[in-house]
Simulated scan of single mutants.
Amino acid sequence: MPPNKGPKILAKNVVAKSKLFSIEALDLQFSNGEKRTYERMKPSGRNAVMMVPITEQGDILLVREYAAGTERYELGFPKGLIDPGEAPHEAAVRELKEEIGFGAETLTPLKEVVLAPSYFSSRMTLFVAQHLYSERLIGDEPEPLEVVRWPLAQADELLTHLDFSEARSITALLLMLKMRPELGL
């Protein structure tokens, strides 16, 4: 059976808008004639990166950052949007410098992920960052981020830490742990 090409898009309309987001309604017709309206975040065309930085001493570097969605500080890996004209690996090094004050000589891609494909189209490239060097750039965070060192040998304990709950960070950690031998860790 050939792969399904997907439903026919009959109409796209912005149904709500804020400073940050636009919600788009898609009127669809499926191959069996069934019609439905789906809502999604209107695609922005911008993707993102997240890095698992690992020091020569065998520590994972995380950031503690305020998350408005959960109304608390969350522990996770450095991340950010890819600027127009920037490649994912360039954005990864820039974000590392902005968020934790380190660049990386070695970036190993882990996987490209989508947060919730039914509602979002933006992709995030996950990397392991190694061979770190000290360099800081000014970022766009409203307050300095707390950098937290976590021993790689205790990475399994991080999975159960109450403040480490973001799905993309958990995914990045699990993928990095699976690749430890190839990464020389």
Rank of each mutant, 00 (worst) to 15 (best):
H161W: 06
Y133Q: 06
E135H: 00
E56I: 07
R180Y: 12
L173Y: 12
K19R: 11
L162K: 07
E141C: 04
M50C: 05
T55W: 05
R46D: 07
I100E: 06
L28V: 09
Y38C: 10
L137A: 02
A11W: 12
E157S: 04
E74R: 07
K5H: 15
P78K: 04
V148T: 01
S44H: 11
Y66L: 01
K5A: 15
P3D: 14
L81W: 11
R94F: 05
K178L: 13
S22N: 13
G80S: 11
R64D: 05
E143C: 04
R46W: 07
E141A: 04
P151L: 03
G58V: 01
P88N: 11
L152R: 03
R72S: 10
V148W: 01
D140P: 01
L75P: 02
P151E: 03
G101T: 03
H89I: 08
K12A: 10
I170D: 06
E34Y: 12
V52I: 13
Q29W: 09
R168A: 13
P3Q: 10
E65Q: 03
A68L: 03
P43I: 10
I170F: 08
M41I: 14
S118F: 13
A153K: 03
G80D: 08
S122M: 13
V113P: 07
L81H: 14
H161A: 09
R40Q: 11
T160C: 03
V113E: 12
E65T: 03
